[in-house]
Simulated assay, not measured.
Amino acid sequence: MSRIGKLPIKIPANVDVTFNGNDIIVKGKFGTLSNQLPNGLGIERTNDSLLLSLKEETRNTRTLYGLYRTLINNMVLGVSNQFNITLNLKGVGFRGSVQGKSLVLSLGFSHPVQMSIPEGITVEVVQNTTLNLKGCDKENLGIFAAKIRSWREPEPYKGKGIIYQGEIIRRKAGKSGKK
């Protein structure tokens, strides 16, 4: 039995959770998220918390038990507080800007890179080289950050590229000189 799945999910005062059958809808001040439970899992509501339960104990439902508890918890946290990812652009001439509903990045290519910003995600550019991404859906936010990072992953010699806040890049020694 999953230790994580047994934990209750605390619901803040400003969040509304409704479920009918296997569909779960979570509404808060930052948006609305929905998910669908597998058939073997059930959900119960107490005063200010949710508790996931196993309807049938099979190997498949036991593996999904902790996963869906975490997914529902992330939905509750996202609509109440929003998730935040910070990306740093390191390199000569690397900069970013937001133009309408698109993100424009100068990453050393012969052309600027334009990416459309998905619905529910906001991008803030600080000092041209720091991108703050905010959104209530943790999965979509992570996918969008990974797409941005895939344009220039950090390289190990000079450390140039798009780097997550707090990420440590292992550096290599360059060529050794002639002897």
Rank of each mutant, 00 (worst) to 15 (best):
L54S: 07
V98D: 10
G28M: 05
D48T: 10
N81M: 10
K29Q: 00
K90V: 14
E57N: 08
Q82D: 12
V26F: 00
A13G: 00
Q82I: 14
T32K: 12
L37E: 02
V76G: 08
L67G: 11
K90E: 13
L67M: 13
S53M: 06
Y65E: 05
N14K: 13
G66H: 07
D23H: 02
N60R: 12
K29S: 00
N84V: 15
A13K: 05
Q99L: 11
S49Q: 10
N60A: 13
G66C: 04
I72P: 00
N84Y: 15
T63C: 09
S34P: 00
L89W: 06
L87E: 10
F30Y: 15
L67T: 13
E57W: 03
N73L: 13
T86R: 14
N22I: 00
E44F: 04
I24L: 00
G28N: 04
L37W: 01
L52S: 08
I25E: 06
L41F: 06
D23Y: 01
L33R: 08
G31W: 01
L87M: 08
I25L: 06
N35K: 13
L64Q: 03
V26K: 01
T70V: 13
N22C: 00
S102Y: 13
V79W: 05
Y68W: 12
L89S: 11
G28H: 04
R95M: 15
R59P: 05
N22E: 05
S49V: 05
T61H: 09
L33G: 04
S97G: 15
T61S: 14
V26I: 04
T70Y: 10
P12Y: 02
R59T: 12
E57Y: 03
L77G: 14
N74Y: 07
L71G: 03
G31N: 03
P38C: 07
N81H: 10
R62A: 13
L41H: 02
E56C: 01
G31Q: 01
S53W: 03
S102E: 15
T18C: 05
R62D: 11
L89E: 12
S49Y: 04
N73G: 09
G42L: 05
E57H: 02
T63W: 10
I25Q: 04
G31M: 02
Q99E: 14
S49F: 03
D16H: 02
G78W: 08
L103A: 10
F94W: 09
Q82G: 11
T58P: 02
F83Q: 07
I25M: 04
T58S: 11
R62V: 15
E57P: 01
L51M: 06
N84W: 14
N74T: 06
F30R: 12
S80A: 14
N35L: 15
V76C: 08
L77R: 14
K29L: 00
L33I: 03
